[in-house]
Amino acid sequence: MIVINLDVLLAKHKTTSQELAEYLGITPANLSILKTGKAKALRLHTLNEICRFFRCQPADLLEYKEDELL
């Protein structure tokens, strides 16, 4: 599964999600969906803006974790 390390990036850059939401032009509720891992899809545009905000690579945000086999 894909894990979105948004809270890690936010902590590292000492910014609030409110600030990021304002920068991205999305509602805090939508950003919360992204942060809590409920999101089903991430627009390339949003990814681009997040990378621009943090001056990082997509790999810093996204991480692939091996799914647990049941």
């Binding site: 999305i26 939508n30 969906i33 999101a39 089903k40 899809a41 991430l42 627009r43 949003t46």
Partner: peptide, 8 residues
């Protein structure tokens, strides 16, 4: 609709 709502 659900997919759309959960797309950020």
């Amino acid at each position: 609709q659900e997919e759309n709502d959960l797309t950020v």
